[in-house]
């Protein structure tokens, strides 16, 4: 049975409220890619730090993996929007609480924010999705951007299946291009 957590997202991507703050947030506020990248990298490092032998999100290149998913993977637009909105929402929270961007906060502050949003249904769902992709970045084929230098495989003594995709053309197989023949 193919049930996936993302199905409970319905509608969340369209919220005009910032559900992490429960106030009207400037959801439309523009975040340049660099800023989004910095925020997401910091979130990733809190969620998957370099501890217990884990190389951590930074060394694994997890942020690039997630941006690749957002750019190329045939996941629903609703899910993509939700991931991107979550980045804004957590940064707005950071600006309200600490008057600076999430990536400028220290680890204790960042952890406090994550612990706060996990108590909210929308925050929990956003973190679940982030973890879902972060953990894919641990053992994906390196060509997807994550698992840099096979560090994830080395950590877990993981033996990938074969053949693994080696060329860009094999990536992000887009079922819709096959099935949409309009």
């Amino acid at each position: 049975m193919k049930l996936r957590k993302r199905n409970f997202l319905k509608g969340l991507a369209l919220l005009t409220l910032n559900p992490f703050l429960d106030t009207l947030g400037a959801v439309s506020e523009f975040y340049p890619k660099k800023e989004r990248w910095l925020i997401l990298s910091s979130v990733n490092q809190v969620l998957l730090p370099e501890t217990n032998g884990c190389p951590g999100a930074a060394k694994l290149n997890s942020t690039e993996f997630i941006f690749n998913i957002l750019s190329y993977h045939p996941i629903e637009q609703e899910e993509k929007d939700f991931i991107l909105n979550g980045i804004k929402w957590i940064n707005q929270l950071s600006k309200v609480w600490y008057k600076k961007s999430f990536y400028q906060c220290n680890l204790i502050q960042q952890n406090k924010m994550i612990s706060h949003i996990v108590l909210k249904e929308s925050g929990k769902q956003w973190l679940e999705i982030m973890l879902y992709y972060l953990l894919q970045s641990v053992i994906c084929a390196p060509i997807y951007g994550g698992n840099k230098d096979e560090l994830g495989w080395k950590w877990l003594d993981y033996h990938p299946g074969f053949p693994i995709p080696m060329a860009k053309k094999d990536l992000y197989y887009n079922a819709t291009s096959y099935y949409t023949r309009a």
């Binding site: 996941i75 894919q136 084929a141 997807y144 053949p163 992000y172 197989y173 079922a175």
Partner: peptide, 17 residues
């Protein structure tokens, strides 16, 4: 056919949208 979990695990491959 490749062995990678990004596409297959997500259930996106080889079935209609």
């Amino acid at each position: 056919f490749f062995k990678e979990e990004v596409g297959v695990f997500g259930g996106h491959k080889y079935v209609p949208d």
